[in-house]
């Protein structure tokens, strides 16, 4: 990546403490547009905590998060999404009593401009925008292989489909950066292979950056251009998949002494 380009995401010396426990410290990361970057590390290393800081679910104790060159220190969860960061959750968080298509439509809420009076009176603006939103939502569902399930209740979907729906919902917010927290967790090898194709397709089709946490090494090594390794809340290594696989420290952290 050329160094004179502004990264989509730039994280500088990020850290957070929970009471006396320092969960993440001195974490640095740059993600450029059109990149797929992996964030790996043993359980409890602080990967999800990094995502929670990037989306302001947790307020960082130290450090800077720059998004598209802008400092985000004062921004809330909602503002981070409006700026262009969307995410999925390690423990799936769908709107489980709503239909599959409504889950995606929720992601488009901020692109809709009709007001409540126009909605209650069903004015033309409401009809036009709802038709457009339905069409766009179906398009996203098609990409993630969920178009046949559009009218099902999200909570009744099989596990793998729920994970894909979460990605579809995140993509509906038209992000510049997509954060995926263990997207392949609980999927069988075939589903994981399909997911890899989908992630690549999303990057190529929407021209966005993707940062993903994953334990499935085949997936991580297969689709990430760069990988950062987190261990005990600290950055252990960063590099290409080949460099990471050959790094003795990473091997030691994963295999133990």
């Amino acid at each position: 990546m050329s160094e004179n380009k502004i990264p989509v995401l730039e994280v500088i010396d990020l850290g957070i403490d929970f009471g006396g426990l320092t969960a993440v410290n001195d974490f640095n990361l740059k993600v450029y547009n059109n990149e797929i970057v992996g964030l790996i590390g043993p359980n409890g290393a602080g990967k999800t905590t990094v995502f929670n800081m990037l989306t302001k679910v947790y307020q960082p104790s130290r450090g800077t998060i720059k998004f598209c060159g802008q400092d985000t220190a004062r921004m809330s969860v909602v503002e981070m999404n409006k700026a262009g960061i969307a995410r999925t959750f390690q423990n799936i968080r769908l709107f489980s009593n709503m239909s599959v298509i409504d889950n995606v439509k929720i992601g488009m809420n901020n692109q809709i401009t009709y007001n409540n009076v126009e909605a209650v009176l069903r004015l033309p603006k409401y009809r036009e925008q709802e038709a457009k939103v339905t069409e766009e939502a179906m398009e996203l569902l098609r990409i993630f292989g969920l178009d046949k399930d559009a009218d099902l209740i999200a909570g009744n979907l099989p596990y793998g489909a729920q994970r894909r729906l979460e990605i579809a919902r995140a993509m509906a917010t038209k992000p510049k950066l997509l954060l995926l927290d263990e997207p392949a967790a609980g999927m069988n090898p075939q589903e994981t292979a399909d997911l890899m194709d989908m992630i690549r397709f999303v990057r190529d089709h929407f021209h966005i950056a993707i940062l993903l946490i994953e334990h499935d090494m085949k997936l991580v090594m297969g689709i990430c251009e760069r990988i950062s390794v987190l261990n005990y809340g600290m950055l252990l290594a960063e590099g290409t998949p080949a460099e990471i696989q050959a790094n003795p420290q990473v091997i030691k952290a994963y295999l133990g002494e």
Binding site: V57, V77, V78, R93, F95, I106, N109, E130, A172
Partner: peptide, 21 residues
């Protein structure tokens, strides 16, 4: 409508609702 979907989303999962803006 847009607001009705948002109302149900906040009921179902507050954190996820915030995460989609």
């Amino acid at each position: 409508s847009r607001s009705g979907r948002a109302i149900q989303a906040c009921r179902d999962n507050r954190i996820a609702a915030e995460s989609v803006g």
